[in-house]
Amino acid sequence: MQPKTTKVNIYTIIVLLFLTVSSLLVLYPLVYVVSAAFSPGNSIASLNIIPFGDGTTFKHFDHLFKNTNYLIWFRNTFVIAAATSICTVFIASLSAYVFSRFRFTLKKPMMMAMLILQIFPSFVGMVAIYVLLLRIGGLDTLWGLVLVYLAGNTPYNTWMVKSYLDTIPRSLDEAAIIDGASHFTTYLRIILPVAKPILIFLAIASFTAPWMDFIFPKLVLRSAHKQTLALGLFSFVTDKKNEFTNFAAGSLLVALPFILFFLASQKLLIESLGFSTVKE
């Protein structure tokens, strides 16, 4: 199609103006985080209203690595996220395979229960989870927190993977069974490879969630060397102290990998979100 230059011009200008203004609004707080991270002051009050107006310094990053447990927080969060992600993929895919391919007693009630449970926020049972972890010695441990995340995710994730597996022809795994493969081999060699797209999505989603969670780490983790990033960063900007620049520096380091990853995978994101709407 040929662009109709004269007629489209005014329309293009309006659209361009709209997009530019929206972009500025979107960028507004983000620019301040970046500038605060490199600004010499300490609190938000001393921050120049013009971004980067006070010159730049790396002293907040220095402070994070030398005087705080930032690296330990980072390591803890990473361990929790990685463990949650790996176990989630394993458990969800295994139960989804059973739900999708087998007939057994109580299958229907169990699936109904999974569907209804997924809607309740898991921290409604906060007090009970605390007492449970206390009884099994899981308080103030990273694995205790991983257990909580795993359990909370399982109903929804099982349903998601099961819906995906339902779209894969059964003949594929039935052929393997006829050839004498055990169910576990079939799961390992046939189901896992074909379900790879949804499992990667699941792995990423369950890896990113713990980085932002606050309630459960606050509930489960007590000692200073067991804190996660969300707890640590929050401690910079409580009512008692306002170290906004340190907070900004720490946040920048967490957010950067996320942003790079999202920008790199935006095509995949749009596709997988498009898939979820069509297939649901």
Binding site: F104, L117, V148, T154
Partner: peptide, 23 residues
Amino acid sequence: FPILGLAPGVGLVVFFVIVPLIF
């Protein structure tokens, strides 16, 4: 296999989701 495959998921859900909700 179906029972063993479901055991981890169902066990976790029963003890860390259903029990807390009833609690």
